[in-house]
Write a protein that binds this DNA or RNA. Structure first.
Lengths: 250, 250
DNA sequence: GGAATAGTGTCTCTAAGACATTATTCT
DNA sequence: AGAATAATGTCTTAGAGACACTATTCC
């Protein structure tokens, strides 16, 4: 067999292709979800209890196998809806990374693409499916226990949280954790919760309201947080922030 | 069949697992490489000519199937070495994204994880393997022709270039395009080439030399660019820039 | 009035933008 | 000397940090 002109796909040899014109599947393809939300000023992640081996009884990120006619994002959106009842139109959903170590699943080769979902506080977590098995765990607790989650899900969660923290700096994505209408102080508490810092209210207010497209006033106000009525805002149309929201260092 | 307690992996049913304790493979797993470098003040991408169907004769990103005992990054590093002769220790190599549309390869389901590689100007592109099939293409030319590349490689390249452009803002990664020792002006031309802008030499010099860990003086100088000898620098140990290098907008 | 929360004024300080100037090599 | 390139000086300006202050509700 010559390899000349056979650069792109080395492992499959000419014979395979010539005879069947199909490729031999070698892995199962899955999606896993890092669903982050904020609950009582804590960053929490959605987890399920595994009912089968391997890792039976252990917590894991929700996920599942990709169907034959599905794209990866579709599969992630479907799993998200099945696990949480949240429609993907109401959340921010983006691809995070793909994990494919040969031994990451003892049942055989599974390549999983993780998606990061950021959602407002879930009113009724998990209307659908297996409600009893779904939990919201405080992220800092889970990260402190490397074996709390099945498979390589601790690493996936670590990567997801880091992505979320970074994205708050240069995108208006913090608003994805808020309801459709929110106050500046609520938005600030998102930053403070995800970053684990405190931010100066005056400077934050100035930054948010003067950055074009970050938020738009909705016209109404609320007193749900007590005190003086706060103006309500909705998400703006900007996709990135220039300059970025600076995260306190040191 | 009950789905209670069977949350994580829905598609495989209990029977499959019980009988074989293995998962049924459903896809072939590949890696593709977006290898970017700079050649004569142009951002160029490494491409190969396909020698087999589908897309025989079309250009494509280099890549190949993941071996049974390989992790994804390993496979990417191996393919990189095979296609370019570059050892992965000499380049920046990071996971870009994964593409898994059901029909992206007519031979069957192929899920491919793309990696982004940034390398200094290749002295002898492709010492190994199939040198005749390897080309360096100007990125702007390729991006202007949506059908120049096979499969969904135009999208992958688009995503890779965008990632590279963004990373120059908040990381010291521009130095990955330079040789081990480089001048400030050479580094500036990397930014100008990748971003397609011009930068003020004074302000750039100040930014680079005052940001801790961005670059370190090597002690020597060069006149390879003519004129007054320029000080040479090596990469520093910073992994992010604070504040970011601002990309001119508008 | 007092507590609680929202929102503003404003001075300081850091760093980026603009652009002029000096320095060191080569032919 | 003149061209080419590297490096620096410095004034202006945008925006972040610090923190005091006022505003509007509830009880």
């Amino acid at each position: 067999m010559t390899i000349t002109g056979f650069v792109t796909y080395r492992q499959v040899d000419d014979y395979d292709v010539a005879v069947s014109n199909r490729l031999r599947p070698t892995a199962a393809v899955a999606v896993d979800l890092v669903v982050l939300t904020i609950e009582q000023n804590r960053l929490v992640v959605l987890a399920v209890r595994r009912g089968v081996e391997p890792f039976r009884g252990r917590r894991a990120l929700p996920g599942g196998f990709v169907l034959d006619d599905e794209d990866l994002l579709q599969a992630a959106a479907r799993e998200l809806q099945e696990e949480t009842g949240v429609r993907s139109s109401d959340v921010h959903l983006e691809q995070l990374a793909t994990y494919g170590a040969p031994d990451r699943d003892p049942r055989g080769r599974v390549v999983t693409t993780a998606y990061l979902a950021l959602t407002p506080t879930l009113t009724d977590p998990v209307a659908g499916s297996d409600a009893a098995a779904v939990e919201l765990l405080t992220v800092s607790d889970v990260l402190a226990q490397p074996d709390a989650l099945a498979f390589d899900h601790h690493r996936i969660l670590t990567d997801g949280v880091e992505r979320a923290r970074n994205k708050l700096e240069y995108t208006p994505l913090a608003a994805a954790f808020c309801a459709a209408e929110f106050t500046i102080a609520e938005l600030r508490r998102v930053y403070e919760t995800v970053w684990g810092t405190t931010l100066d209210p005056r400077n934050f207010h100035r930054k948010v309201t003067t950055t074009p497209g970050f938020v738009e006033p909705s016209g109404s106000t609320t007193t749900r947080d007590g005190g003086r009525p706060a103006r309500l805002y909705v998400r703006g149309d900007a996709r990135t922030l220039h300059p970025a929201m600076l995260r306190p260092r040191g």
